[in-house]
Design a protein around this nucleic acid. Sequence first.
DNA 1: GTCTATAGTTGGATAGAC
DNA 2: GTCTATCCAACTATAGAC
Lengths: 212, 212
Amino acid sequence: MSRMPVAERREQLVEAALAVASRDGIEAATVRAVAAEAGVSLGVVHYCFQDKDELLRAMAHAITERNAVQGLELIPSGLPVETVVEQVIGVLWAAISGTRGSQLLSYELTTSSLRHPELNKVAIEQYRGQWTTAQRVLEVVGHAADVSWTVPVEELARVVVAVIDGFSLAWLVDGNAEAALRGLQGFGSYLATLAVPAGTSDDDVLPAPADA
Amino acid sequence: MSRMPVAERREQLVEAALAVASRDGIEAATVRAVAAEAGVSLGVVHYCFQDKDELLRAMAHAITERNAVQGLELIPSGLPVETVVEQVIGVLWAAISGTRGSQLLSYELTTSSLRHPELNKVAIEQYRGQWTTAQRVLEVVGHAADVSWTVPVEELARVVVAVIDGFSLAWLVDGNAEAALRGLQGFGSYLATLAVPAGTSDDDVLPAPADA
DNA sequence: GTCTATAGTTGGATAGAC
DNA sequence: GTCTATCCAACTATAGAC
């Protein structure tokens, strides 16, 4: 354990911070607690990170990346869009409902970030990541089901993230996973109504450039 | 200021706590800060409240009540349901976007409550209040526009709260009020499609009891 | 009832031995 | 590089003077 390169040590500490914060909340993620979780002494943390904020920022970055990389690129083709959407929501909800502590931590990070200037960029980066992820998923779904969306995907992505956020929060509060999933699938049905068969062009969305 | 009855003093302190927490965040709402905000000394707070948690619970209760009592009972009658929904959303959004600190505090209270056993009931009471409020608004809207909902209002209320939560959070993060309102109105349009002209009976929803 | 003073914790950060 | 020891600040809570 001793004499570990700094980069590796930082990873280990970020991992420990994630473990503590997911389990006991962001307030519990003190420098001391993280050091104890990682099995190192207090000084080591301050050697690897300038201060607590830098540690928290690193942790936030890690959780954001982790959420983004959820590779759902194995979406089946040739199915009706309602089915594809339903399946994607099912997989997504399994990922969410299986990581309660992480989800709660995400909201804690968001609110903390909005209060403390030194964590200012955490929340916006978190959401930018979610918006672009949602947008990519929508595009992949559209391609897989051979449809295009009647609403700009960028705008639609915001709606998707908002709805998921809302139902996740409700589930965190009342623990009713069935109601949350039912609500999400209801939204999925609505979402499917916003899709129309793709245009004659084999890939893109623009049917006919009007002018200029 | 001196020699104030305890009940009144408690109100004053809860008010001060709300002011501090809305402005600077729930973490900043320490006993000291609240005492300072109220212009009393540290001991006074501990004389009126057993401990910090009781003060926070009182504050949470106050903010929940405040959100619930937003008397929107002046909903116009005789208009199409799309219009009524649009107007209600407009009023609601004005109330939300005008109280940024309070909104953020609500989310902080929710997450805090979910982490700390001693605040256990705060979050669920918060949401129960929001769900029943949403349900009442849906019922009033249905009555005013002379429609009934094709989805159980209880279920629909959960959806409404989730969507509002989601868009509010996004707005807190990116400050884009136009996008949030646009998203909410988009949801409102969808909501209106879930309404059908009220049955022949002048008030209730049940058209024909099938059996028993 | 209200104040000051203080006890007792906790946590961030650093110095200095090894 | 890693550890122990320590400083300092902020907080909750209470005791006791007035």
